[in-house]
Design a protein around this nucleic acid. Structure first.
Length: 128
DNA sequence: ATTCTAACA
DNA sequence: TGTTAGGA
């Protein structure tokens, strides 16, 4: 019932929907560490399919690749779930990152309201 | 056919 | 980013 436990870049690309180009980029950034075959081809493990999913999730969270590399090293995959593992400060670091984003949103909201006030006070636009 | 690295218009 | 060259 087990699918191929190893695959080359093309197969991983199809299984994840992530381009080969991006897959190589992830490796450059230290997010994936495929083994190499004698011929130099990258050999990915079945678990890399899930790993790519995690990478995309972390990327969607706005984390820089350097941080993602750290996080991946502090996490243990249990049935698709990311479980923190012996890396004190990681969850805290992520929480502070979250707080920083909330702060940025607050500032943007204030800027938006200020612009709304400005626009409301401006003469109506009647061009033609 | 597939992948690899490197380099270019 | 893409693409192409030149190999293995």
């Amino acid at each position: 019932m087990d699918a191929e436990s190893h695959m080359r870049i093309g197969a991983l690309s199809r299984r994840t929907g992530v381009s080969e180009w991006l897959l190589r980029y992830y490796e450059e950034q230290g997010l994936l560490h495929p083994q190499r075959r004698p011929n130099g081809y990258r050999q990915y493990r079945d678990s890399d399919v899930a790993a790519v999913g995690h990478i995309r999730a972390l990327l969607a969270a706005g984390l820089p690749t350097a941080v993602i590399a750290q996080v991946l090293g502090c996490v243990h995959d249990v049935g698709g779930r990311l479980v923190p593992e012996a890396c004190p400060g990681m969850v805290d670091h992520l929480s502070r990152e979250r707080a920083r984003i909330a702060d940025t949103i607050a500032h943007l909201g204030a800027a938006q309201r200020a612009l709304d006030d400005l626009l409301a006070a401006l003469p109506s636009t009647a061009d033609t």
